[in-house]
Structures are given as C-alpha cells and as structure tokens.
Computed example of a mutant assay.
Amino acid sequence: MRYLRSLLLCLSIAAMFLAGCATTTVQYGDAGSAKPIGTDFGSSDLQQIAEAMVDSLITFPPVAEQTSQRRPVLSVDKVKNKTMQHIDTESVTDSIRAKLIKSGKFRFIDRTTDEAAVEEIKTQQESGLVDKKTAVEFGRQIGAEFLLTANFAEIVQKAGSVTDVYYKFTMNLKNLKTGILEWSDEKEIRKISKRSMFGG
C-alpha cells in the first residue's frame, strides 16, 4: 500500500514537472502556401481566387482594349456569401481590388469610406478652420463607370468518412452607363477530406 502511494506521488510530481516544462512554439508560415489543412475556406483559397479573377479581367480582350489608353473608374460591391460558412468576404474584395490597382489598369471608388468623407467635407466647408480656397466642395467626386459584383457559393457532399466541398466564386463587371455586362468569370475550388479510421 505504501509502495502504491509512493508511486502515485512520484507520477503526480512527474506530471506537474512535465506540464510546467511544456512550451508553445510559434513560427512564420508561407503566406503563399497552397497546402490545405481542411475543407473550410482558407487563405490559400482567397489568394487563388484573387489571382484568377484579376488575371482573367485584365487579359479579357475588350477590357484590355479599354484600359490600354486610360484607367476606368470602378466601384466594388460587397461579395454575396451564399455558403454556410462565416467568411470574411471583405478580405476577398480587398485582395482583388489591391491586385487590380497594382495592375495600373483601373482606378477605384471606395464606398465604404463615404460617411467619413462626408464628415470631412462638412468640416472643411462649415467649421471655419479650412481656407475656402482649398476646401473640397460637395458634388465634385468622380462617378464610377463600372461596378464589380461577386457571388460565392458552395456545395457540400458527405459519404461516410469522406467530405467533398465544391466552391464557386463568380465575378461580373457591369457598365453602369449602358447596363451591359462587360465581363464575367468564375473560379472553382474543390476540397476532399477523408477521415482516418484511427485517431478520430
């Protein structure tokens, strides 16, 4: 009995010692890595979508012709998330917009900052703090010529230990003056996971 108590005491002390010595290691990963770790939408999927959409848009012949001499003004609508996941669609939009701006082909209107812009212009016009000669006037902003819209959908199929997830991202470019859909494309991503019989 005494031996058993001593053994349990030693095991308890050893467990406490090991727990106290446990450390968490953090390291940088490759932001461009395409290796999936699950079927959920991830950063590599976001990068694939952004690159595919931008490459498709700027190389589409009619669009390439329009952007060869000037930089049209675009506005981007929020991505409509039709999946069952909580996805930060603003990050998808931001990535696509950033890549398009870097291409040097387009200029953008950011409607997400309109409220702050209105307050700033009001301050310049009404506060008396800003020289009227340099104060920005209302109604002087440039209107967007085109509108980028996007839908993000998924289809999930499960059979036993296998989960098959199909993603489809569709983006459209609409001419606001004519109403014509100037460009449309989609990016498909499929992820399949198989749960091992051992280890859950």
Rank of each mutant, 00 (worst) to 15 (best):
D164A: 14
N172K: 02
G139P: 12
A153G: 11
A150F: 00
E120Q: 06
L129F: 01
T170G: 07
Y167P: 09
Y167E: 12
R140P: 02
E119G: 03
K158P: 10
I155W: 10
E154S: 09
T123L: 01
G139Q: 13
F152P: 10
Q124Y: 04
G128H: 03
F152I: 12
L176K: 02
L176E: 00
V136C: 05
A135M: 10
K122N: 10
K132M: 13
A150W: 01
F169V: 12
Y167M: 11
K133A: 12
F146M: 08
A159L: 14
A117S: 13
K122D: 11
E145R: 01
T149L: 04
L147E: 09
A117L: 14
T149P: 02
N151H: 09
E137C: 09
V118K: 02
I121P: 09
V136E: 13
E137L: 14
E126C: 03
V118Q: 05
Q157V: 15
A117F: 08
L148G: 06
N151R: 09
T149M: 07
G139I: 11
G139A: 13
Q125E: 14
Q141S: 05
T170H: 08
T134K: 03
L148R: 01
E145A: 02
Q141P: 02
T163E: 09
Q157D: 15
V165E: 04
F169Q: 12
V165N: 08
L176Y: 01
A135D: 07
E120M: 07
Q124W: 01
S127F: 00
E154Y: 05
V136R: 08
A135K: 03
A117Q: 13
